[in-house]
Design a binder for these strands. Structure first.
Lengths: 281, 281
DNA sequence: TCGCGCCGGCGCG
DNA sequence: TCGCGCCGGCGCG
């Protein structure tokens, strides 16, 4: 086992812990993922550097999630920076740290709080899903909040902090139509884990329909829910096409998928193609 | 590493594989879980016997799922065997091996197939969830199909085969009211993994409401969805109380939880208390 | 401290 | 063969 100190491993009571942000920036010398690289190849090469230092599989699994999200978030940011009409997909923290409905203006946020309370009072019923990995913000609110979006040219610690924290600037700022959708990201899928995604999509869409009803909005754009992974198969696609159950109880409504589309993105080129499809007007 | 052969490890190209059924029956000498034991204690002692033989954590994680399900299935079986009015909770295989709707009579099964096809045709929309771990069958169909339910007194390979395969006898046999509900079982929970359960519950309940509408059944009992784990906390309970989204779109319907109740069961005594609550009339 | 949301390594048919 | 559904070990605030 390598015993020199490296800045991205922290010893904690005899256990070697990965400092996720420092690991990817230090090992790769702040290099952006290059067009000839694959994301799974990058994850593997980070694993190969780190594993000999006594880091367990659970730590690497945990890190893969953030590393893949950061690499995607970077392409999403640059897509918006390079296209003045593009929407922006931003990373979100977990729901303990930030309640998603706070992105909306206080009026809309209040409707969601009211819905939650009313449903809760009818019998201890809640509205729980994980926070989606990304929110897609309409360009109008982006231009109000971050008028100058500078492209990111290095995967530095500062760049990662920007990708991780910019959502905070949008608190209270979004109108109903300015949250365009969400993206769920998984570096790999399993038949059980993938079902977390339609659960999230189904719930977000039901809340959206509720706001629409309460605000009597006649022809809204709808909310989009996307998913991205490094590799997908037909079973994954079918599972994510599962119906949003609020849309099938009555004959009058058209059945709607919980997840609008699942994309494979295992390289910067593929990621840019995805974001150009879902962020450009 | 222990190198004697044991009958519950299979070498497969240099990798030690656990034969799950043989491991629990052989190591425990077919003993039933005793009232003074905990399920997590039993899992731990099985781990401690098996791990030194070079079996990895992934294999043990996989085995924990089946071992815990078998120990619960045994108590459910005996609850029905010892109470002539009790419903029966039976293990189900995965959805590739058995399409759940086939438990219903062909008429009801046809309605579900029809729903799936119609929704599919409106835009490649599907109805995917994992099969629940258990189905709860009403005593009337149990009495028709297995008139003599013998208690299980040993955790033998034969007993496990009975627990695993008895569902097959109920194919085509259940009326609409004779499938009382489902149970999802997890030996441990995580904030992401637990959300697979409301997804399943929400989907099953939406399908149930659809059948009810199509068959114009005025006051059905409803379908119950339960969950069981060895240990639960308040966040788990709240997450599983998430609303079934089909029930909140219109003002007219009462919001309904996707999962009716989450139970902790870490011993035979606790498991019997759970099954007596949900299986006895 | 612990809640969050991450994901790989399984046994089996 | 591969699809299914299993679950522990994380880094972080």
């Amino acid at each position: 086992m390598e015993m020199q100190n490296v800045p991205y491993i922290r010893m904690n009571g005899g256990r070697a812990e990965v400092i996720k942000r420092d690991a990817i920036t230090h090992i790769r010398g702040q290099a952006l993922p290059a067009d000839h690289e694959t994301y799974t190849g990058i994850l593997e090469s980070l694993d190969n550097t780190i594993r000999p230092r006594g880091v367990g599989q659970g730590a690497l699994s945990n890190a893969h999630g953030d590393w893949y999200e950061w690499m995607l978030a970077l392409e999403a940011w640059n897509t918006a920076a390079n296209n003045p009409d593009a929407d922006l997909a931003l990373l979100l923290p977990n729901k303990r740290r930030f309640d998603l409905s706070r992105l909306y203006s206080p009026r809309i946020c209040g409707i969601i709080t009211d819905l939650r309370n009313k449903v809760l009072q009818t019998g201890n019923i809640s509205f729980v899903s994980s926070n989606p990995d990304f929110v897609i913000l309409g360009r109008s609110v982006v231009d109000r909040v971050i008028p100058h979006l500078n492209p990111i040219n290095m995967l530095s610690n500062d760049a990662i902090d920007t990708l991780d924290n910019s959502y905070l600037e949008f608190a209270d700022q979004c109108s109903f139509e300015e949250i365009k959708g969400y993206i769920s990201v998984k570096s790999s899928l399993r038949p059980d884990r993938r079902l977390q995604i339609p659960h999230e999509g189904s719930l977000m869409k039901a809340v959206y329909v509720h706001i629409q009803t309460r605000e009597w909005i006649i022809n809204p754009n709808g909310i989009k829910y996307y998913a991205i992974s490094t590799a997908i198969n037909d079973s994954d696609i079918e599972a994510l096409n599962t119906v949003a159950t609020h849309s099938i109880t009555t004959v009058s409504s058209v059945p709607q998928a919980a997840v609008d589309q699942l994309f494979a993105a295992n390289s910067p080129v593929e990621a840019r193609a995805v974001f150009e499809q879902i962020l450009l007007p």
